[in-house]
């Protein structure tokens, strides 16, 4: 079953084409890497996948619905099924880590579930000692793990991560990758945009992945160098 489908999609900024003829089919439970040089449009492609941007050409379907015809509430509902981890994480800096992680439940009116889920989740990402800290007090790796915990607290169908290992050391990258692989084994669809070839190689030894490369305005299957 397809969860996110991009069909012949194009995007441009101010008339300058970023990419076109991009087709991507994310099947439920699949694990994808998206690579490519800086400025190729990886982040834009991810934003199309969770409805933050609308394609300038082609069609994007989120859980079977055409993103171009979805109203704003429908897009919000779709985002509750997609956990997003940004490179810069994006937290509410005035709220403690627990409240930030529980935010998806809060905005969905399911804050009562937070008490049941949070302790396990904090243990899973290893942040049980940082629960009451504010986001600016966390290290880069802790912020990435907190962002991952927030992305998965709603048990979404899809996890999208944009350069999740960009600001952290190799050991922490490995730990984050392990968490993402665990999620994939639980049936979640994972899409990761990264420059980090070592992470891709490490993942390929543990899980069946598909690696895509966005280059020269086109999306293609990555070469054998991986």
């Amino acid at each position: 079953m397809t969860v996110i489908d991009l069909d012949n999609v194009a995007y441009s900024y101010g008339g300058a084409e970023l990419f076109s003829q991009v087709s991507l089919n994310l099947a439920a439970g699949s694990f994808h890497f998206l690579t490519g040089p800086s400025g190729a449009g990886k982040t834009t492609l991810l934003k199309l996948c969770y409805g933050e941007l609308l394609a300038k050409g082609g069609q994007v379907r989120l859980f079977g619905e055409d993103a171009a015809t979805m109203d704003r509430d429908a897009v919000a509902m779709a985002r509750r099924r997609i956990g997003v981890v940004h490179q810069d994480c994006q937290f509410l800096d005035h709220l403690p880590v627990t409240d930030n992680i529980a935010l998806p439940l809060t905005v969905s009116g399911r804050e009562n579930e937070a008490a049941d889920n949070l302790p396990d989740l904090l243990n899973w990402v290893g942040l049980q000692n940082q629960a009451t800290q504010l986001p600016p007090q966390l290290s880069g790796g802790e912020r990435q793990r907190a962002a991952l915990a927030r992305a998965v607290i709603m048990s979404p169908d899809v996890i999208i991560a944009d350069e999740p290992t960009g600001n952290i050391d190799w050991e922490m990258s490995q730990r984050l990758l392990t968490l993402l692989i665990e999620l994939n084994r639980m049936g979640k669809t994972v899409l990761i945009a990264t420059h980090d070839m070592n992470i891709i190689r490490a993942a390929k030894t543990q899980v069946a992945t598909r690696v895509l490369r966005l280059k020269d305005r086109r999306l293609m299957q990555a070469g054998v160098e991986l």
Partner: peptide, 16 residues
């Protein structure tokens, strides 16, 4: 603006 961006990212509706 940053708060709004984060709330949107996690699925908050405009009315919320």
């Amino acid at each position: 603006a940053q708060v709004i961006r984060v709330m949107r990212l996690v699925g908050a509706r405009d009315i919320y």
